[in-house]
Amino acid sequence: MFSEGEFNDQYSAEAEYSDLDEKCSRIFVKDIMEVRPVVINADDPVEKVLEVFNEKEFHTYPVVEKNGDFLGIIDQNIILQLLTHRVSRLDHTHLMAVKSLSEFARGIMIPHPVTIPPEMDLCEVAEIMIKHKVDRFCVVDKDKLVGIICKPDVIKAIYSLRG
């Protein structure tokens, strides 16, 4: 049994959450995403990719074709493996070796990562991020990269909705 105070607290918390749900379902990825992310061109040499990671501090960069078509991502894990060759023996497969021989970004990227459309609402993005432990998504519309959205963007947006 709930005491009256507990019941009221829970009731008000539920009301607050449902209000938040409603508010965040009216906000879309396109409203809060980074629309000009730093991108890597598929034909950029690996050396240039390393420079990008050296100069900037993002975890992941989208890889695009010249015409803006989204192809894949390169993240810090790949770069660290390339720089140190320190991968577990289990990963000493020809695929890893092919990556370490690649001269261009397209050879080292992770192809086919999960992407989201710009019209997805904030609640859904938050849910996917929590459920599937994903920290960031590239936002793709008709095969073109239109932005990138990270967990801090989602947190800030939801925090501001609390009023």
């Binding site: 060759h85 023996r89 289990l90 000493h92 497969t93 020809h94 890893m96 070796a97 370490s100």
Partner: peptide, 10 residues
């Protein structure tokens, strides 16, 4: 199975 020899090549 080239895993072991890839290590040597590296």
């Amino acid at each position: 199975s080239i895993g072991v020899t890839v290590k040597t090549l590296l």
